[in-house]
Measured scan of single mutants.
Amino acid sequence: EEPWTQNQQKLLELALQQYPRGSSDRWDKIARCVPSKSKEDCIARYKLLVE
């Protein structure tokens, strides 16, 4: 798996703010905001960050 770039991390953080918990299809929308990362990548990264 490719490491996360600073840019991808920033895009993930912005998308998390844009689509708060409870948004419909939240992770699909977030993944579309982060180039070359899947929905599963984004969820895994999020879990890593909040632990």
Rank of each mutant, 00 (worst) to 15 (best):
E1R: 02
E2S: 05
E2D: 15
P3Q: 14
P3Y: 15
P3C: 15
W4Y: 02
W4H: 02
T5K: 02
T5M: 04
T5H: 06
T5P: 01
T5G: 05
Q6M: 14
Q6Y: 05
Q6I: 12
N7A: 10
N7T: 09
Q8Y: 01
Q8R: 04
Q8A: 07
Q8F: 00
Q8S: 04
Q9F: 05
Q9N: 07
Q9G: 06
Q9W: 03
Q9P: 00
Q9E: 15
K10G: 08
K10E: 11
K10H: 12
K10W: 08
L11A: 11
L11R: 08
L11W: 06
L11F: 12
L12A: 02
L12P: 01
L12G: 02
L12D: 00
L12F: 05
L12W: 07
E13D: 12
E13W: 08
E13G: 05
L14S: 14
L14I: 12
L14R: 11
A15V: 00
A15H: 01
A15M: 03
L16W: 02
L16V: 11
L16R: 02
Q17D: 10
Q17F: 08
Q17I: 06
Q17L: 11
Q18G: 03
Q18D: 13
Q18A: 10
Q18V: 06
Q18K: 15
Q18M: 10
Y19N: 06
Y19D: 03
P20V: 04
P20M: 04
P20R: 06
P20T: 07
P20L: 04
R21F: 11
R21C: 07
R21W: 04
R21P: 11
R21D: 15
G22M: 11
G22D: 12
G22W: 07
G22C: 07
G22P: 06
G22E: 13
G22N: 15
S23F: 09
S23I: 06
S23T: 13
S23D: 14
S24P: 14
S24R: 12
S24M: 12
S24T: 14
S24W: 09
D25C: 11
D25E: 12
D25T: 07
D25L: 07
D25G: 10
D25W: 06
R26I: 01
R26Y: 13
R26E: 05
R26W: 03
R26L: 05
R26M: 03
R26V: 05
R26D: 05
W27I: 04
W27M: 04
D28Q: 10
D28W: 04
D28E: 15
D28T: 14
D28Y: 04
D28F: 03
D28H: 05
K29D: 03
K29V: 03
K29G: 05
K29W: 05
K29F: 07
K29Y: 08
I30K: 01
I30H: 02
I30T: 02
I30L: 03
I30F: 00
I30V: 10
A31L: 01
A31C: 06
A31P: 02
A31K: 03
A31M: 03
A31R: 03
A31D: 00
A31E: 08
A31T: 04
A31V: 03
R32C: 10
R32E: 15
C33V: 11
C33R: 10
C33H: 09
C33I: 07
C33A: 11
V34C: 03
V34S: 00
P35M: 07
P35I: 07
P35Q: 12
P35Y: 06
P35D: 08
P35F: 03
P35A: 11
P35T: 07
S36G: 14
S36H: 13
S36M: 07
S36K: 07
S36W: 07
S36T: 11
S36L: 12
S36R: 12
K37V: 03
K37S: 01
K37G: 00
K37L: 01
K37I: 00
K37A: 04
K39T: 09
K39S: 11
K39L: 05
K39Q: 08
K39C: 04
E40P: 08
E40C: 07
E40R: 09
E40G: 10
E40W: 11
E40Q: 09
E40L: 09
D41M: 08
D41F: 01
D41V: 02
D41S: 12
D41C: 06
C42R: 00
C42V: 07
C42M: 00
I43T: 03
I43P: 00
I43M: 15
I43W: 07
I43Y: 15
I43V: 13
I43A: 09
I43G: 04
A44R: 12
A44V: 07
R45E: 04
R45W: 05
R45Y: 15
R45C: 04
R45G: 04
R45L: 03
R45H: 11
Y46V: 12
Y46W: 07
Y46G: 12
Y46H: 13
Y46S: 14
Y46L: 04
K47M: 14
K47Y: 07
K47L: 08
K47T: 10
K47G: 10
K47Q: 05
L48R: 12
L48A: 14
L48F: 14
L48H: 09
L49D: 11
L49C: 10
L49Q: 12
L49I: 14
V50N: 15
V50K: 15
V50Q: 14
E51G: 09
E51K: 10
E51N: 05
E51R: 13
